[in-house]
């Protein structure tokens, strides 16, 4: 089970969270998009092997959404950050980070 650093509550079990896939996908103006651009917005989300910035909601705690870097190969947790703030850089792929470090982010 993952230990996930909620920026509001600190480190909690994964079972307290729901997943929201890729973070930072802006809501486009549907009136200015072609059908394929709209399809892309609706259905295509990043699915990389490695670090992925993603959304989580702490439904069994504060109930708030936040963003988190997480590695899809090692399940390593990177820094958490709030929506509409500057995204921290992706963690170094070779670093072997302490999981707790994310909690301070």
């Amino acid at each position: 089970m993952l230990n996930i650093p909620c920026p509001y509550c600190g480190l909690r079990n994964e079972t307290e969270f729901h997943y929201g896939a890729e973070a930072g996908v802006g809501y486009p103006d549907p009136n200015t998009l072609s059908d394929s651009e709209w399809a892309k917005y609706l259905h295509i989300r990043a699915n990389p092997k490695g670090w992925l910035p993603e959304r989580w909601v702490h439904f069994a705690g504060c109930g708030r959404w936040f963003n988190l870097w997480r590695n899809t190969v090692t399940h390593e947790i990177g820094p958490a950050y709030l929506p509409f703030t500057t995204q921290p850089k992706a963690p170094d792929p070779d670093s072997n980070r302490d999981r707790m470090e994310g909690a301070k982010a």
Partner: peptide
């Protein structure tokens, strides 16, 4: 499991 992964393992919960 709830999240994207390529690790061929999941959580025990």
């Amino acid at each position: 499991d709830a999240f994207n992964s390529y690790a061929q393992r999941g959580g025990f919960h």
